[in-house]
Design a protein around this nucleic acid. Structure first.
Lengths: 168, 168
DNA sequence: GTTAATGCAAACGCTTTGCAGTACA
DNA sequence: TGTACTGCAAAGCGTTTGCATTAAC
């Protein structure tokens, strides 16, 4: 469902995708989350930890319901409500982003510390291609600066037909 | 709620915003819609026409419900269902775009023939600033071409704090 | 006259919430 | 032991849909 690509200088590790990120990095991310909980006087529950671990195992896009199912397949029962509540926390510490690709539900995405990318979305097969382009980021920076606007984050979605679908 | 801005060569008329577009242009757009109906063997009903006129009167962002209310204030009763169905048609002939700005509901926008812009969204006051930047478009074009991707449309949303909110 | 459109209200699907019971710190 | 968290089921909310009626062509 998701491809990984970079067509410009990669600002961080290049081995993204699948389960390939190094153990140190995942540990760092988990620490960010733990620190956040501590700072807010929140508790690390069995369920919260299970959800976070499941999300950190991978770097693709997923739906909330998918996490419920993946955990259930592993014999871990966590309610939908708790998954949504945990996603909210992860968004707050910028470890997860929420996307809308034109359908009713939201897609979430595990974002690695400080990394960012945008999306090409094939409206025929639903495939989502990720890319990062430094020039694009620079131009956006400049636009914000022109408007005296202080960016926190952005989302660029390019819709169209991917190369595979164009061939068939 | 919405500002209009261009910080790059304007590809079309500069007097956009408010109710300022010329009568010729509005007529052209209506013709596009009428042609579309004819081509698809669809009918121009009283309700459909009322919805389209109401949308073409203005160029800001709006919610579906807002159209229902604006018409009702003018003593024109059109059901929510019909408004949604008409918006669908307008999207199909590219006279309206659908956006998600991070809240539950969709925002729609009357887009003028062949024009396009992106959005800066202030997460503090909710203000939406429109902009167009040719360099940005060029870079996107290039990215698509690198991926063999055929773009139909795109949406860039930059979230952050606008200059007014930064001052206060 | 035929075909498509409308309005209503019910259905939908994702997400959120109130609340009583549970578990972390 | 106190406070936060969980699960459940119900509610919310924007949006879509089935169906009987109405209107365009």
């Amino acid at each position: 469902m998701t491809q990984q690509n970079r067509n410009s200088p990669a600002p961080a590790s290049a081995e993204r995708g699948g389960h390939a990120e190094g153990p140190r990095k995942a540990a760092d991310e988990k620490q960010v989350f733990l620190d956040y909980l501590a700072r807010q006087n929140l508790k690390l529950t069995r369920q919260r930890e299970a959800v976070v671990n499941e999300i950190f195992r991978d770097s693709g896009h997923f739906e909330a319901e998918e996490i419920v199912q993946r955990l259930r397949n592993n014999r871990v029962r966590v309610s939908r409500a708790t998954v949504y509540r945990t996603l909210e926390l992860l968004k707050e510490c910028q470890l997860v982003e929420q996307h809308n690709f034109g359908t009713a539900q939201s897609y979430y995405e595990h974002v690695h510390l400080g990394e960012h990318h945008d999306h090409l979305i094939c409206t025929q097969c639903g495939n989502v291609i990720e890319f990062y382009n430094q020039r694009l980021e620079d131009v956006q920076q400049e636009i914000c600066s022109n408007f005296g606007f202080e960016e926190t984050h952005h989302s660029l979605r390019i819709f169209g037909v991917c190369s595979k679908c164009r061939q068939s």
